[in-house]
Design a protein around this nucleic acid. Sequence first.
DNA 1: CGAGACTTTGACCGTAGTCAATTTATGTGG
DNA 2: CCACATAAATTGACTACGGTCAAAGTCTCG
Lengths: 258, 258
Amino acid sequence: MSCQASALRALAGGPVFDAARVRDFWRRVERYSVGSQICLDQRRGSHREVVIISGWACELRLLVDGRRQIFGFLLPGDVIQARATSGVGSQAVVALTRLEVVAAHPEGADPASREAVRQALAESALRKEERLYDHMVRMGRLTARERVVHLLLELCERLECVGLVRGDTFKIPITQELFADALGLSVVHINRTLKELRREGLVTIRSGSVSLRNRAQLAERCSYRPAAEVAARVSASLRHSLRPYREMDAPDRMRISA
Amino acid sequence: MSCQASALRALAGGPVFDAARVRDFWRRVERYSVGSQICLDQRRGSHREVVIISGWACELRLLVDGRRQIFGFLLPGDVIQARATSGVGSQAVVALTRLEVVAAHPEGADPASREAVRQALAESALRKEERLYDHMVRMGRLTARERVVHLLLELCERLECVGLVRGDTFKIPITQELFADALGLSVVHINRTLKELRREGLVTIRSGSVSLRNRAQLAERCSYRPAAEVAARVSASLRHSLRPYREMDAPDRMRISA
DNA sequence: CGAGACTTTGACCGTAGTCAATTTATGTGG
DNA sequence: CCACATAAATTGACTACGGTCAAAGTCTCG
């Protein structure tokens, strides 16, 4: 199974794309160079969504004063959507490496596989949303160490799905600066955190290669995944941190009685 | 125009819901008590999405060690979706006040308004996504002061849409603790930040009422909205913070040549 | 009027940021 | 293949923003 094919398979989470179709896709690959912005709106009609075949991208926003926030990384097998992304001047999807993508919706496919692709895209969108929430937890409630480990675990897991992890090791085309912008930390502090993790032998990062030893232990230490079985607990812990509330009367209030 | 009707109108951003329908909706209102979890899956079929008529809710996740992260607040006019939310044990939507909601999809409506509602829901989802990104910027790249002001501006703007702002003032049924959990800060620090803002006369918060003086100035000070006209700048500022990248060879690599 | 939940404050600590310099890649042109 | 130019990664010294702990003050509601 080629790396490209596995990337495509990952999109669907199943064998939606057969070899023939991959080969077909392959002929229509589009490439982006490092640092270029991916603007899908400007492309011809059907290209509303593309799948990354190889390379990394990230979604980010710039603040007026130069601060940057990276919302997440896009890896092989991930979908890039048009959406508001490219609309809000300040937000963008940028290629972090040479990037190869293909249209997610194959032209002239049979209805069955169309539907399969549609489902795959929906599922992919859900996963992406989950990742957004994870990322928010990282920045809001995890310490620097935890943030770094948590993100590395996520990347490792995602890369594993597309066969880009060898043992404990995978490659990341990411400078410490980008890491910092993703995790809401300073470059210096990222550097020190990595150094510390390295010293403890849990994580090794050197020249674009990451090794995670004992992932289970790492996951536990940074609350990766097992985010409390809530249900009951949520309301319990909230019930006592609420204030009485009365909505402000609307200026032109007019009750509609039942 | 009643407060309820305006809340509904806000959903669509236009006069999708007329008085008659509102009255109809009104009969089918469902209520949640403070602190209760909103689980739409468990409800009868069509109720996949509901609109908040009055009250606040929030979306949050608990970590095993008790840390909490609030992802955002849901106000009158906002849509609560079923999605993964209630699936991932740890994540939930919880009512912060008494909450009144109605099904977003009116039963037995004519096709035209069905379509209108569908569009309204889509747009609402987009706005929500935008808010997620905003929130991420807050936690990742803004200082405590900025975070607080930024969030207050967002809430004010959203409440204004549904007529719940009077002049500069609106109500928030939110304890400082919830504020802290939303912004990734400690209660104590939230308190001090509010105190400082109050001292400067820019923002006043007291017993659930917020007043924002000179919103324009506030917005500028915390990079609200005007997040840099990027486009060109994005790639420019990134082009130099990238490392050469070669994907890790997949174990079973097999090239498909063009 | 109490009890409990919130808010506020003080004292002190520590994580993470800033500034600046040095070292180490990485790449490029000769 | 080497020398130089740049971008990255490191490190040290110092700062400061925000966290923690604990106590006191307020507000609400029964």
